[in-house]
Structures are given as structure tokens and as C-alpha cells.
Simulated scan of single mutants.
Amino acid sequence: MNRAVLAVAVGVILGGMTGCSTLSPQIALTPQPTLSPPSAVTAVPAAQTPLRTVHTPAVVVVDEQLSAGECHARTVDATRGDYLPDAACTPGAIDPAVSQADIQQTICVRGYTATVRPPAAATGRFKSISYAAYSEQYSTTTELDHLVPLELGGASSASNLWVEPNRTLASSFNNPKDKVENSLHAAVCNGTVTLAAAQNAIAADWTTALAALHLGAG
């Protein structure tokens, strides 16, 4: 697959898109420099590709192109709502504006995520693209999820966003991953684990992230 790396805010480029991966012809595309592993991420497991770094200050950035039907969520336990994204489509990405050195001024401050969360109009436009890429049908219980959550310094980029299916018979978009995110956030802010360790664990497999970091079961 030819993935032109794009640094284009969805709020600017995606008006009028209907869920396909073809960008509007009148859009001027700005190439983004080749992404390099973030310096804050250390001790990355050998089997895991280093997380991308994409700065997304309250915008959605399209840093990769996804074709309809190319992505496939992995089912761990449908009854529990344990689904993993396609690692080739959604490898995970972090915002370099958040580092271990500044967590007490960023993610550990109450209300931080509201300052970096893109507006609903922007995420809504990208959600249609992700639905098509993952061949998912619209559902009120499906969440456009940040694989590495904003509360752990995750980026609002195509490489970190996916339509996450929910557990069988779910009545809202609240899902089991939310509890894992909150537990990891608390552990990072109280110094139990490093930011990089939490980011890499949840990107690798959120269903085992707590156990992998010796924080209990998921």
C-alpha cells in the first residue's frame, strides 16, 4: 500500500467526504516529514513498532491514507467488548507536546483533555472514513477511539483513531477500554509507571496492558 504521509487537519480538508478514502481534488496536500521514533519512548518491545509522533493541537491530522475495507478489527472477546484495531492501519501515535517531564502540567491537570480534543465536527468527518476502512456499520455504541488516549498524551491522528466495536448488547459507547485508560492515567500521574511504558502497553494490546505493567487484570 502506498501511504503518502500527510499533515492535513481534518477540519480543513474533510468537508464533504462521505466515508471513502479519496481526498477532495481541490485540497492542497502538504507532505509531512518522515516521522521518527519519539525520544520520550524508551524500552519499546522488539515486536512493536515505535509509536508515531504527530502534533495535534485540537485538530485531527490525516497522517496516512486508508482505503475502504483494508482494515480489520481483531476480536478478543466479543461478549466483553474486547476488540483490538488493525495494527497496520492504527499503529498508535502520541503528541510530542506531552512528555514525562511535563505530565504534571499537562495530562495530570484536571480538564487537560478538553484543551486538546478536536471539535465533534472534525472527529465526525474522520469517523466516516474509519467506518469505511474497517468495514463497520454505523452504531450508536461504536466509539471513535484514540488507541493511545488523550489522557496519556495520544494524538488525534489517523494512525491513532479507529471505530472501536463495543460489547454484545451494549447500550452506549462506554466500553471496557475506558477503565484501562483511567487506570493507566492514574498510574502515570502517581509515578507508578512511566508515560512511555503506559503508552506502549496500551498501543500494543489494551486488553493486557494492566497485567503487562503489573497493575492487575484488565
Rank of each mutant, 00 (worst) to 15 (best):
N2M: 06
A4K: 13
V5C: 04
A7F: 02
V10K: 04
G11K: 04
I13A: 15
I13Q: 09
L14S: 13
G15A: 15
T22I: 09
S24W: 00
S24I: 04
S24K: 06
Q26D: 15
A28V: 13
T30N: 13
P31L: 08
Q32T: 10
Q32M: 15
P33K: 09
P33N: 13
T34G: 14
S36V: 12
A43C: 09
V44G: 05
P45H: 07
T49M: 12
R52Q: 14
H55L: 12
V62N: 01
D63V: 07
L66R: 11
L66M: 14
S67P: 00
A68G: 12
A68M: 07
T75M: 05
A78V: 12
T79I: 04
R80H: 00
G81W: 04
D82I: 10
D82L: 15
L84I: 01
P85H: 08
P85L: 14
D86M: 13
D86S: 15
D86V: 09
D86Q: 11
A87L: 11
A88H: 04
C89H: 09
T90Q: 10
A93N: 07
A93T: 04
D95G: 11
P96V: 08
A97F: 08
A101N: 09
I103M: 03
T106C: 11
C108I: 13
V109E: 01
Y112C: 09
Y112S: 11
T113Q: 05
A114V: 02
R117Y: 01
R117W: 01
P119I: 05
R125Q: 14
R125S: 12
K127Q: 03
S128P: 00
S130E: 10
Y131V: 07
A132C: 15
Q137T: 08
Q137K: 10
S139G: 14
S139D: 14
T140V: 10
T141V: 05
T142V: 13
E143K: 12
E143T: 11
H146D: 08
E151V: 15
G154W: 02
S157L: 10
A158M: 05
N160R: 03
N160F: 06
L161K: 07
E164G: 02
P165C: 14
N166F: 00
T168G: 07
F173M: 05
F173K: 06
N174T: 14
N174E: 09
P176C: 13
D178P: 03
V180R: 02
E181Q: 15
S183F: 01
L184Q: 01
L184E: 01
H185K: 02
A187H: 01
C189R: 04
N190T: 10
T194E: 10
T194G: 15
L195D: 03
L195S: 03
A196M: 04
A197C: 06
A197V: 06
A198S: 10
Q199I: 03
I202R: 02
A203D: 06
A204R: 11
W206F: 06
T208E: 00
T208V: 11
A209G: 02
A209F: 03
L210Q: 00
A211V: 05
A212W: 02
H214L: 03
H214N: 08
L215W: 03
G216W: 01
